[in-house]
Amino acid sequence: MTSTFLQFLFSGLTLGAIYALAGLGFSIIYNASHVINFAQGEFLMIGAMATVSLVGLGLPLELAIPLAVAIAAAVGVALARFAVVPAGDASVVTVIIITIGASILLRGVAQVVWDKEFHALPAFSGTVPISVLGATMLPQSLWVMGVSLAAILALGWFFGRTMAGKAMLAVSYSRLGAQLVGVPIRRVLLTSFALSAGLGAIGGIVVAPITFTSYEAGVMLGLKGFSAAVLGGLGNGLGAVLGGLVVGIAEAMSAGYLSSAYKDATAFVIILVVLFFLPNGLLGHKGSERV
């Protein structure tokens, strides 16, 4: 009984950590521009697919990963430079549609550059399950959780302690105000896309040994990541992780105790109920609306 519950919990933690990593990238771009980047899932896909193909070329994993992250970050900067910055003061919805276009474009490029097959990355620390009280978990799940934790700490430090991070937050509060005090808006945007693309790529690479990857993998990761980020409270890294864990555990418990067909629905019902009582997510600030 206990071991069954524990197994469901482990399953939920694994899923939750994956969603959390997918969700973190949303908060960075949101902080800099209030835009939901619908191409965020594609950054995860690019990271994983690039790693797969670099490893296929004979590179060791330790070298392939940083290269893949750099590729994804470059794609992020290019997206910001050629599609988001030129849109200037377009409405948030317009920029969101641009990111939808970008996600279609990136999937299209991926299927031409790579292929339409599924690919697996080797697990970082083997596949011997860790057993606790009769329930098991793969070492890779711990990697995913560890990387999520490291990412929140790094983001907390970035937004709280560094000039670039503070500038980003300033832009999110008031674009004009930030501009007046000399914050280079353009550079802030480029940095935010580079950061979230790089972080997304790391996430995509760490989860690939569990979920596999393909040119379409970003769709599911993007949707779950968005859910996690909104449930947790947009722009809040800790919130995204908490949101991811809630969604993941809800899915696993529902599959375990209720019905596997309705596990995703259960997760969304929980999100709706939470938003009903906390309209700004679990950890979101009650923002004052500009009049």
């Binding site: 069954t4 197994q7 469901f8 482990f10 399953s11 939920g12 694994t14 899923l15 994956i18 098991t136 989860v207 569990i210 979920t211 769709v219 599911m220 696993a252 418990m253 599959a255 375990g256 596997s260 067909a261 596990k263 995703d264």
Partner: peptide, 20 residues
């Protein structure tokens, strides 16, 4: 009798039910 979605990342919960 259990199901999963085509893009699910983990099905240990369903398999645990099958095992039991």
């Amino acid at each position: 009798d259990e199901v999963y979605s085509p893009k699910d990342s983990d099905v240990t919960a369903q398999l645990t039910r099958l095992r039991n």
